[in-house]
C-alpha cells in the first residue's frame, strides 16, 4: 500500500470539503473492494475520505411503492431486512449472496453501486428494478447511471446518498457464482411491473446491461418458456479463464428462465 491521508467527515457538507481539500481523494465506504486494491498498490489516492461516520447515510425505509436504502447500509442489513424480504425478496437474496458473511458485514450498497464492478451483484438489482440513484447533487435513473466498466454517471466528487427501489409485482434473481471469488460469473435479475418487464444482466459483459429481446418476450408472456436461446449474442461478452463468452451467453438464457420461474414462485 502507498501512504495516504485520512479524512473522517461527519456530514455530507464535510465530505465535500474534505474532498476539495484533497489532491486526489477517494471515498472509502465498506472497503471490501478498495482495501484489497490498495494493498496490491493498484491505486494511489492522496487521501481516503471515510464515509463511515457521516450522519444519516445508513438505513432502510419502506414506502408504499418503493424501498429506499441509504448508501452506507451493509449488505447483511439488506439481506435481513423484513420489508425487503417481503416486498422485493430477490433483492434480499441478492444481498445475502454477495461475497461471504464477512464481506456482507462490511460492504455497502453505495460502495458497490458507485464502483460498478462488472461482476458485482447490486448493479443487476439497480438496473433490473429500475431504481433511482440519489446523490448529494441529483437523482439519476438506473438506465442512465451505469456507463461502462467501473464507470458511472457520477461526477467527480458526487456522492451516492441512497438508492430507491420501486416494488415490483414479481421479481427473481439467479446468480452463477465464480467458484473462487463468489462474484457473479453471470447474474440475471428479472422484474415485472404491471405490463413492463425488466431484465438486467451482470457479470457477463463489461457493464451491467438490459436485454430488450427478453423483456419484450416476457411482456408478452411472463413465463420461462418465453425466453429462447441465443437472445444475447456472445460477441460483446466477457471472455476470461473463468468463462468463455459463449458460455456466458448460454448462461444468461438459463439463468433468466430460472429467474422468471423464481419470480413466478
Amino acid at each position: 500500500m502507498y501512504d495516504f491521508g485520512i479524512k473522517n467527515p461527519t456530514s455530507i457538507d464535510d465530505v465535500k470539503a474534505a474532498l476539495g481539500d484533497a489532491e486526489d481523494g477517494q471515498f472509502l465506504a465498506g472497503g471490501q473492494t478498495l482495501i484489497p486494491v490498495l494493498k496490491q498498490r493498484l491505486a494511489m489516492p492522496s487521501d481516503l475520505i471515510s464515509l463511515s461516520r457521516v450522519d444519516g447515510l445508513s438505513g432502510i425505509t419502506a414506502g408504499g411503492d418503493s424501498i429506499s436504502i441509504k448508501a452506507m447500509t451493509r449488505h447483511a442489513e439488506v439481506a435481513a431486512n423484513a420489508d425487503i424480504k417481503s416486498a422485493i425478496p430477490a433483492l434480499a437474496k441478492l444481498a445475502g449472496g454477495i461475497g461471504d458473511p464477512h464481506v456482507r458485514n462490511r460492504g455497502t450498497i453505495g460502495g458497490s453501486v458507485a464502483n460498478n464492478d462488472p461482476a458485482a451483484d447490486y448493479p443487476a438489482a439497480v438496473l433490473g428494478l429500475g431504481a433511482t440513484v440519489i446523490t448529494n447533487e441529483r437523482e439519476i435513473d438506473a438506465d442512465n447511471f451505469f456507463t461502462g466498466m467501473f464507470d458511472t454517471a457520477l461526477n467527480e466528487g458526487e456522492l451516492i446518498t441512497e438508492i430507491s427501489f420501486p416494488i415490483p409485482e414479481a421479481v427473481g434473481y439467479i446468480k452463477f457464482p465464480n467458484p473462487a471469488t463468489r462474484y457473479a460469473l453471470v447474474g440475471v435479475m428479472v422484474a415485472k411491473f404491471g405490463n413492463t418487464v425488466r431484465v438486467a444482466v451482470t457479470g457477463a459483459g463489461p457493464c451491467v446491461f438490459r436485454v430488450p429481446e427478453m423483456e419484450q418476450a416476457l411482456t408478452a408472456s411472463f413465463s420461462p418458456d418465453s425466453i429462447k436461446d441465443g437472445l444475447v449474442p456472445a460477441d460483446d461478452l466477457n471472455n476470461d479463464i473463468h468463462a468463455s463468452r459463449e458460455y456466458r451467453a448460454h448462461l444468461i438464457g438459463v439463468l433468466a428462465r430460472r429467474a422468471v420461474a423464481e419470480a413466478n414462485g
Binding site: N178, P179, A180, T181, I241, H242
Partner: peptide, 10 residues
C-alpha cells in the same frame, strides 16, 4: 493467470 485466490478456486 491463476495467480491469486481471486482466480485459483479452492
Amino acid at each position: 493467470v491463476t495467480g491469486s485466490l481471486m482466480d485459483y478456486a479452492l
